[in-house]
């Protein structure tokens, strides 16, 4: 099975280790992994700000980049969710409509791909620790991925999974929201950080780097010791 990595611009620049773990997991389960170099950003920062024309420039670039891919897999519910929106945005555009649909159909978030396509529930990870999981809003509400990450975490022997209180509440990231409405965003992330503390978990795990930067950045500033990790890292801890 041929899988193209959709790294997302955040992971590409700030968290390449998440990409490395993603590649290694996929290869471990027999995928032939490639990295289409023409890829950039999914277009979400501009789209969510109402700059549709500008966001479509990014989207077209992504469609060109993944034209020949069989599967597209990325370590982010939010960015993959954006790819899934392309068909709506290019509806009626004779040049791009078909491409948009094709890309949306073959794109998956990492845990979704592992569970739904590869049918894996036990990745063989040896990770140990008390873990709480933050289900990011776009992963669950827009992409509809709710169970896959939990299923994978539950099958790791060493993981003690503690439920995050009011886990469905947004952490306050929201892309440009965190800058435009920084004061409100701060209150939201403060609340999330308190909830994480209540769990007494050693690790906060999530599937979207944006949210993890936000929560992690807050907890670091507060001097809290919880370690913030992307789920790919947990799934790829072997030996």
């Amino acid at each position: 099975m041929r899988v193209s990595i959709f790294i997302t611009c955040l992971c590409d620049i700030f968290s390449p280790h998440v990409g490395k773990h993603t590649v290694e997991i996929l290869e471990r389960f027999g995928c032939e992994v490639d990295f289409p170099e023409l890829q950039t950003c999914c277009g979400q920062p501009a789209y969510n700000s109402g700059f549709f024309k500008e966001s479509k420039e990014a989207m077209k670039q992504m469609m060109r980049a993944f034209k020949d891919s069989e599967y597209v897999v990325g370590p982010s519910g939010s960015c993959v969710g954006m790819l899934k929106e392309y068909p709506n945005l290019f509806k009626g555009d004779p040049e791009w409509e078909e491409e948009a649909r094709k890309l949306a159909d073959k794109s998956y978030e990492l845990t979704q791909f592992l569970v739904d396509v590869l049918k894996i529930v036990d990745v063989g990870s040896t990770f140990k620790g008390k873990v709480t999981y933050h289900p990011s809003c776009h992963m669950t509400r827009l992409l509809g991925v709710n169970e896959a990450p939990i299923t994978l975490l539950k099958h790791i022997d060493g993981v003690e999974l503690i439920e995050l209180p009011v886990k469905e509440d947004c952490c306050g990231f929201g892309g440009t929201f965190a800058v435009k409405n920084a004061a409100i965003s701060e209150e939201m992330v403060t609340e999330k950080s308190q909830h994480v503390t209540e769990t007494k978990a050693e690790y906060l795990v999530g599937g979207d780097m944006g949210c993890l930067f936000n929560i992690g950045g807050k907890m670091q500033r507060e001097g809290k010791k919880v370690e913030v990790v992307h789920i790919a890292e947990i799934l790829n801890t072997i030996g």
């Binding site: 990595i5 790294i7 992971c11 590409d12 620049i13 700030f14 968290s15 390449p16 280790h17 990409g19 490395k20 590649v23 990295f35 170099e37 965190a178 800058v179 435009k180 920084a182 701060e186 992330v189 930067f213 936000n214 992690g216 950045g217 807050k218 670091q220 500033r221």
Partner: peptide, 20 residues
């Protein structure tokens, strides 16, 4: 605005694409 209340990570020494 962001860093008024929380930290932000620095870009990594090596990007994913270079690593790959």
């Amino acid at each position: 605005e962001w860093t008024n209340s929380r930290n932000f990570p620095a870009p990594s020494k090596q990007s994913f694409r270079t690593w790959f």
